[in-house]
Write a protein that binds this DNA or RNA. Structure first.
Lengths: 226, 226
DNA sequence: ATTATAATTAACAAAGTATTACCGGGGAGT
DNA sequence: ACTCCCCGGTAATACTTTGTTAATTATAAT
């Protein structure tokens, strides 16, 4: 770590703002905050953040519009942008990607998830050179931005759950994810679903991606390998 | 599997304490309890729990403050902390995370939910440790994360029991593990299996790893050597 | 040689996973 | 508002792998 990354948080709900702010500071980031679009633009001009986290739903000026305006500022074209959205807001419905969102983060926010997402974002952001090439995982690329998998250049679009599942598994190729962990991360710790639900989703993924990527580790769980 | 995780429960309501305690013990955890902050700190000093579950609302000293004090104790910085909160007590969440809460559990508590949350927490806690490079044991490496053995760079995947067995033996190379101990650690103290079960598993391991690693000590047990 | 302990093998039981079919809810399009 | 269709999930069943047992053979120690 050289100089801490600067993050601008924008949300009209003070609770959330504080909560996120605290957690990010703990991770060593330099955190700035704003409670509305106008204020956000002011702050952005001054601090030139590496990453802006914007609530989509805000009074006055919504996150999308705010984003558009911030991006128009000099020197801020290359900054990373993440939107906060309520759970279950279908990604495709959101106009955010049109203004160049780099990630979506669902509320309610789990600190651990947040932290890793942000790290990933900042890493991506610092790759100023290449227009952000997604990692190639044995002929497969995960395009979070478009919510699509690329297999040998061919697009395969996945439903949400399947996407989240492959995303998790591929996040650390080779690592075995226990059923517990998968349930926890993809379905959420307190949702109780049947034992075979994961299997079925794995099945559907294998149908679409081919049988060579997701391996079962009997008695333990699954892992992504190539 | 190895040694049971230690959990410290703190709540002023005896009903809840008993209820949780019962459920957690059933899951195989070592459970300690306290009914107030001061007592909690005493117990924490002694047992050095892996996880503390704290009621936020308590007379005398509330959960947050208790947590702060416990964390200040030597050797307890890295422990996991979960707070029990009444439904929708949003405000306390913020304060809680400031003292390093790792999770919130809402009352009323459903045992099933509790169980999975706790598993996740303890897992997270142990993951927090150092990224622990795998030791090379005479051409063999045990990769717990991927759940495979690496022999001369080549991956050998093992079934659960075989993996646990080699893991145990290799945990202290050279040391002889008696059949009793092996049964206890791998199969669990209360499971009754036949005399030859261990032999068969050793056999299978030797088939896969070669005959040069596991040595028999007649009349005593087995040891891992290289 | 005799006895006790261990290794091997094959057959069986149990656990775990894959597959298929199906159902209900919610959104998209009409 | 009414379909229709897709997604996410369940249930039942078939299938595979793993774990255990028991019977048999081999080995070492006295």
């Amino acid at each position: 770590m050289t100089t801490p990354a600067k993050i601008l948080l924008v949300d009209d709900e003070l609770d959330i703002l504080e909560f996120l702010s605290y957690n990010l500071k703990k991770e060593g980031y330099e955190v700035h905050t704003a409670t509305n679009g106008t204020e956000a633009i002011e702050v952005a001009k001054k601090v030139i953040p590496n990453l802006v986290i914007l609530d989509v739903m805000m009074p006055d000026m919504d996150g999308i519009e705010t984003c558009r305006q911030i991006r128009a500022l000099p020197g801020l074209k290359d900054m990373m942008v993440a939107f906060l959205t309520a759970r279950n807001e279908d990604y495709s419905q959101i106009a955010g990607f049109e203004v160049g969102a780099d990630d979506y983060i669902n509320k309610p926010i789990k600190p651990r998830v947040l932290s890793s997402r942000i790290k990933a974002l900042l890493r991506r952001g610092s790759n100023t050179e290449v227009a952000e090439e997604n990692e190639d995982l044995g002929g497969i690329k995960i395009d979070r931005e478009r919510f699509v998998i690329l297999k040998d250049g061919k697009e395969i679009s996945l439903p949400k759950k399947e996407f989240e599942l492959i995303e998790l598994l591929a996040s650390k190729p080779g690592k075995v994810f226990t059923r517990d962990i998968i349930l926890d991360k993809v379905w959420g710790g307190d949702v109780v679903v049947g034992d075979r639900t994961i299997d079925v989703h794995v099945r559907k993924l294998r149908e679409k991606l081919g049988d060579n990527y997701i391996k079962t580790v009997k008695g333990i769980g699954y892992k992504f390998e190539f």
